[in-house]
Design a binder for these strands. Structure first.
Length: 482
DNA sequence: CGTCGTACCCCTACGGGTACGACGGTGCCGTAGT
């Protein structure tokens, strides 16, 4: 088996060795063990399910949170010469869907959404397909989004069961012990039998800073951004602010900036990502909509204008910097009162007592079942025998969210090592004694920025060296100079 | 918290001031209607 694995790695993926965790994950599912894999972003998680797919009969079903992610993965497989990959979602045309249904058994990789699996026709077809590996990509979404605004994520255990309980693999980059337990729970896996492959969430190359502002946050943001020459993301908690700042930075300060949030059309999202990748844009002013599945190697700074909802969110967003393994800067700008937005989100994102009561009393006339909040209420109804239990469960959820928020507040005011504090949340200890670690460890921001800018400069020079003039251009230049 | 929209007031006319309340974020799918 071992030589077979290496052979596939070489032939299909053109790699000669594995990165940390990959081999273990692959061997685990080949051994038919349900597996939870937590590897840092950009460490090749898709290989963990793609490779074993080639060593088994049958189909691998991948549940993915975003349409763009599905399209991306399918495209990459196609480019690698794997034609037996397909995405089954709302973008699939009726005729295409019919064709997929007809030849379902011929595919090796089927990508779909949790919502799509609620469609009985889709499920019936998949039942016939002999799914041998059930994969949940970005599995923290089960816990984060499922319990929040995409309740269909919570139905995956039943789906999995009705597909004959295939070997299951959940992949994520950041999940606390609690979130990992929830993933296992909502997939209907046995916690003792599930093999967990966990790597550290620490990204040593990213340096943490917190700036506590007293009414001068805007000036502070400008001050920092003006110094930066490399690529960066500024995260906001409001779409409007993201738009305003993107305009402000480009019109007033001549920076190449654009905003990114859920109001954008899919085409524009792709366009902006592409421009950022090509360094046609230097700065993205984004809401939390930006980043999942996005892989730009040389992002040098991540600034948070608003307070993130949790340490997980913060590490996810910050983790988009420094994929090249070189230095990166993470700055959180905090102004007293910033936590109120998050508090409001907590208070309004769970079903109210009124909705819950209506659901329990089946007063369906006033309820639209497509409403995520109502669906979530139904979920609480299914899992709690009576209304009081459900209300208590909701209170418990709220409490967890408040704990996460208060952890971020403590992070802001933490005078000891910021990194250690974040790692503690993930039950990890800071391994090496990093002197150059964070603002609490006495790291100098100016010096770091100078280093980052130097790095960006050498990147640009390298790119310029690589850029050899195409012969046509050379010819035209010569011709024009005659 | 900060911002923005709306209702209301004043009391006669269209407009300015203010007080109060609402809102801020993440994505699938399907269906109605163009």
């Amino acid at each position: 088996m071992s030589t077979q694995i290496m052979q596939i790695l070489h032939e299909k993926f053109a790699y000669s060795s594995f990165r940390t965790g990959q081999r273990e994950a692959i061997e685990s599912v080949l051994d038919k063990k349900d597996t939870l894999v937590m590897l840092p972003t950009g460490s090749g998680k898709s290989l963990c399910y793609q490779l074993p797919t080639y060593l088994t009969d049958g189909v691998t079903l991948i549940i993915s949170p975003l349409l763009s992610l599905m399209q991306d993965q399918v495209e990459q497989l196609h480019l690698r010469g794997e034609k037996r990959a397909v995405a089954l979602n709302s973008l699939t045309s009726f005729s295409e869907r019919k064709r997929i249904f007809r030849q379902i058994k011929q595919y090796k990789f089927i990508y779909t959404s949790p919502e799509m699996l609620q469609n009985q026709q889709v499920l019936e077809v998949l039942k016939k397909a002999h799914i041998q590996l059930f994969v949940v990509d970005e599995a923290h979404c089960i816990s984060h989004w499922g319990t929040d605004f995409r309740p269909d994520y919570l139905a995956l255990a039943n789906i999995r069961k009705s597909l004959g309980s295939p070997t299951t693999m959940a992949l994520t980059a950041t999940a606390t012990k609690q979130v990992r337990d929830e993933i296992i729970h909502f997939l209907g896996l046995d916690i003792k039998e599930t093999n967990q492959i966990i790597e550290s969430v620490d990204r040593k190359e990213i340096k943490f800073f917190v700036e506590i502002c007293e009414g001068n946050k805007n000036e502070k943001l400008i001050e920092i951004v003006k110094k930066m020459t490399g690529a960066g993301i500024i995260y906001f908690t409001s779409k409007k602010m993201a738009d305003e700042w993107a305009n402000n930075l480009s019109n007033e300060y001549g920076l190449r900036a654009s905003s990114y949030h859920s109001d954008l059309e899919a085409d524009d999202k792709i366009k902006i990502q592409q421009q950022f990748l090509n360094n046609d844009l230097q700065i993205i002013c984004a809401t939390s909509a930006f980043g999942m599945g996005f892989n730009k190697k040389d992002i040098r700074f991540i600034i948070h204008y608003h307070l993130p909802s949790s340490p997980e969110m913060y590490l996810q967003e910050v983790g988009r910097a420094s994929r090249d393994g070189k230095l990166g800067l993470a700055i959180l700008l905090y102004q007293p009162g910033d936590e109120y937005i998050q508090q409001r989100f907590i208070e309004t994102s769970l079903p109210s007592k009124e909705i819950l009561t209506a659901v329990y009393k089946r007063k369906q006339t006033q309820l639209s079942e497509s409403d995520a909040m109502v669906k979530l209420a139904y979920y609480f109804k299914e899992t709690s025998i009576n209304l009081n239990d459900a209300l208590q469960a909701i209170e418990k959820r709220k409490k967890i969210k408040y704990q996460q928020l208060s952890f971020m507040m403590q992070y802001v005011y933490q005078e000891d090592c910021k990194r250690s504090y974040l790692l503690n949340y993930f039950c990890e200890n800071k391994k090496s004694s990093l002197n150059e670690c964070c603002s609490s460890c006495g790291l100098d921001q100016e010096e770091l920025i100078a280093k980052l800018n130097k790095m960006t400069q050498s990147y640009k020079e390298e790119e310029a060296r690589k850029r050899v003039l195409p012969w046509k251009e050379v010819y035209n230049n010569l011709y024009n100079n005659l």
